[in-house]
């Protein structure tokens, strides 16, 4: 068994285990941490697929930005009361997930490979055998894949700028990011007191209450003032 197969096995077990723990653990912060472990495993798989740039991008964006955003959002909405009970709709959710998985599998299955070949090939893999007559590799070590692998990031960069390939999509994704930022800022804006109808009526009631209190306070003051001071204030008013 090759080293890469062992590494792949370890990464798979880590990924599936961490993903299972994310949905079953009761502590939300731990769930976020298990999610981060699963992101690390995915980055490892990108490395096995000879896509080093995407492994580092996974670390940078998912673990460095999105996980932190996730944790901040959890803290913002739940505080530190992070113990949550298990979802009571787990059964229905399980059935729906299985249906969605079946639909996706039917539509996304790569055409030339049949399901039983993959399963049988997988077992053969575990025993260190071959697949389709040649030793199985993640990315075959021949001439055409070598050229792609060595230049992949460069070609991606050139394609990102080229309007004929991905340039328009680049601008679109920039616009999408902009829209996301603007939307979030709008949603999180500070509202003035009387922004909604209920708030407005409440604000009016508050104002009336305050006016009433003020008039009461003035009346008390006027009654409590000694005559001299009252005369002085009357004089001051002239």
């Amino acid at each position: 068994m090759e080293v890469s197969q062992i590494v792949f096995l370890i990464l798979t077990v880590t990924l599936l285990g961490a993903a299972a723990l994310v949905v079953t653990t009761k502590n939300l912060f731990h769930a976020a941490l298990y999610l981060i472990v699963s992101f690390f495993s995915v980055a490892g798989m990108y490395v096995l697929l000879e896509a080093g740039f995407f492994a580092a991008a996974q670390l940078l964006v998912y673990i460095g930005a999105i996980s932190i955003l996730f944790i901040f959002a959890v803290m913002l909405t739940r505080g530190t009361a992070l113990i949550t009970p298990l979802n009571s709709q787990a059964g229905a959710v399980g059935v729906m997930s299985a249906i969605m998985f079946a639909i996706l599998a039917v539509f996304l299955w790569p055409a030339p490979i049949r399901l039983q070949e993959v399963i049988l090939g997988g077992f053969r893999l575990l025993r260190g055998g071959t697949y389709g007559g040649e030793p199985w590799q993640f990315v075959p070590n021949n001439a055409d894949t070598a050229a792609v692998v060595n230049n992949a990031t460069l070609r991606l960069g050139a394609a990102l700028g080229d309007f004929a390939q991905y340039g328009a999509l680049l601008l679109l994704s920039g616009a999408l990011l902009l829209v996301g930022v603007i939307g979030s800022i709008w949603v999180a804006r500070e509202r003035k007191i009387a922004d909604t109808r209920a708030d407005r009526s409440e604000a009016a009631a508050d104002a009336r209450h305050e006016a009433q209190l003020e008039s009461e306070a003035e009346a008390r003051e006027a009654a409590a003032l000694p005559a001299g001071a009252h005369a002085a204030s009357v004089e001051g008013q002239h």
């Binding site: 940078l60 673990i63 460095g64 932190i68």
Partner: peptide, 17 residues
């Protein structure tokens, strides 16, 4: 690594966790 500096930035970013 052929992604040397990018790797350094990624590691620095992941360490905030």
């Amino acid at each position: 690594l052929n992604i040397g500096v990018f790797y350094i930035i990624a590691i620095g970013s992941a360490s905030t966790i």
